[in-house]
Amino acid sequence: MDEDTDDILNNIIDDDDDANIQMTPAELIQKMEEIWINEKFAPELLPHEQEIVDLVLSQISAMEDNVETLPSADFKKGFYQLEIDRIRFVVTSYLRQRLEKIETYVLHVLKEDEEREEAYLSEAEQQFALKYKEALEEHFDNATMFYPGLPFEDWKSNFVRPNMNSFVFLKAKSNVEGVVVDRGQGDDNEIVDIKAGSQMLISYKGVSDLIKKGDLRLI
């Protein structure tokens, strides 16, 4: 991001007194990019980041208002506009990514969310998931209604689950000690320490908590 864009962003943040998280706009955008990339590469649905998304969205509309005030002959306007488009792409791509995961693993996601204390779905996403599940079930029931009383309920207990053992590239943001590398066979698990800034390829399952905590990020 160039300095000019920072300027435009800073003007907005100054007006924004009720923001309770202290964050410069550049940090906010960086954070947004980070959660977007994490969501993109994690096999499972990650906890939602409603606040960040809302902040970025209000940021975008404020930036748009600022750009409006520039005369259309100003050649900087094009750059700002493109920057806004880029940020907007990140946000929409992030939300789309989540919707796709919710659709694919709908039964799994809803069940997990019920069992967990902290909800990974935002309220709107949950509503969407419930409706989607309802429509899907209705459709399947419809498809198998021709003979009542058959073992048609099987698919409900046999749903699609994300592959938690798939491999991910990650980069450590801080020093992490004692990550267990699960070899999947008995007790001979290896324990590794990850230094800040180092990158590695590892099975997702072992590091999922650390990614949610924010010690590691996917790349």
């Binding site: 809302d54 969205l57 939300l95 919707l99 509503q127 969407f128 409706k131 989607y132 309802e134 429509a135």
Partner: peptide
């Protein structure tokens, strides 16, 4: 149904 729940979701994002 899918279309309407998607629309509802998209309308609900942001302020």
């Amino acid at each position: 149904k899918y279309s309407s729940s998607l629309m509802q979701y998209m309308r609900g994002i942001g302020d």
